[in-house]
């Protein structure tokens, strides 16, 4: 049973863990994958497309790190490039046009840190998603299924409802990155993980996320079924709102986050 914050980090990163690709396969019926950002290329770290969740048409955008080593290299271990974020935004706009809810699955250590990613505007791509998602005229549900790593995770995280799996983590910086800045040694990652308050329970208490899906003591099938039910419930709740109400609630939800005196 996971206890410490760093145990959760390890669980979230485990190669056995069900991530975006798993949930697309197991939650979405008649999935049609749609590729490419129509600008430069197609990023395999993001699997996206359309299908049905409990008979409700949805657009799905999922971070996926791959299975075999070769597959993982192709997908940059699930770290999206600017093309991935731009593909996501293109499909969100398509969903908006047809009034279809968007479901995002987040699970990666962060945006890909590469020379080419910088050349093609990694920062701009993430910024654009934050900006456009805030007023996208259709419900957005974001689910943190694995490691929610920094801005690269948030770029799919501006949701009306953000759900976290119990053992997922969500943080501004990796515990290793934090430890090397703070204590000049990434071996202090467990202490950094505690300090960063990155567990699902922490984020729920901070009102940064709205729901936690229990995992401990449950089979993967039960977890998947619970998540499916939770997403369905949220979609029907959000569909009852007018677009104006939906967008006002989304804005206010993020507007309120912050602590100061």
């Amino acid at each position: 049973m996971e206890n410490t914050a760093y145990d959760r980090v390890t669980a979230a990163r485990s190669s056995q863990r069900a991530l975006g690709g798993y949930y697309v396969k197991n939650l979405i019926d008649d999935f049609i994958e749609l590729h490419g950002d129509r600008r430069f290329g197609d990023d395999a770290a993001i699997v996206s497309g359309i299908g049905y969740l409990d008979n409700q048409p949805v657009t799905v955008i999922a971070m996926e790190r791959g299975d075999t080593l070769e597959d993982r290299m192709k997908r940059h271990f699930g770290c999206p490039t600017p093309e991935g974020y731009r593909k996501a935004l293109r499909l969100m706009k398509e969903a908006e046009k047809f009034g279809r809810p968007v479901v995002c699955f987040i699970g990666s250590s962060g945006a890909y840190p590469g020379i080419d990613a910088e050349e093609r505007g990694q920062g701009e791509a993430i910024a654009e998603n934050l900006y456009e998602m805030m007023t996208l005229k259709t419900p957005i549900i974001s689910v943190v299924v694995g490691e929610g790593g920094s801005g690269g995770a948030l770029a799919l995280g501006v949701g009306d409802t953000v759900i976290m799996m119990e053992n997922a983590v969500y943080s501004v910086i990796s515990p290793e990155g934090c430890a090397s800045i703070l204590w000049k040694d990434s071996a202090n990652a467990p202490e950094a993980a505690e300090a960063l308050k990155l567990t699902s329970q922490d984020l729920y208490d901070f009102k940064v996320i709205e729901r936690v899906i229990e995992e401990n003591g449950k089979s993967q099938e039960e977890i998947t079924a619970d998540l499916k039910q939770a997403i369905s419930e949220v979609i029907s709740q959000k569909q009852k709102l007018s677009i104006e109400e939906l967008l006002a609630e989304r804005y206010d939800k993020f507007r309120k986050i912050g602590v100061y005196k």
């Binding site: 910024a127 934050l130 900006y131 805030m134 920094s150 801005g151 948030l154 995280g157 501006v158 969500y170 943080s171 501004v172 910086i173 934090c178 800045i181 300090a195 960063l196 308050k197 990155l198 922490d202 984020l203 901070f206 940064v208 804005y251 993020f254 507007r255 986050i257 912050g258 602590v259």
Partner: peptide, 16 residues
Amino acid sequence: MQEGIFSLMQMAKVSG
């Protein structure tokens, strides 16, 4: 980073 998830969320808040 000293403000954890609160600092990350400022990116969304300001962009909005």
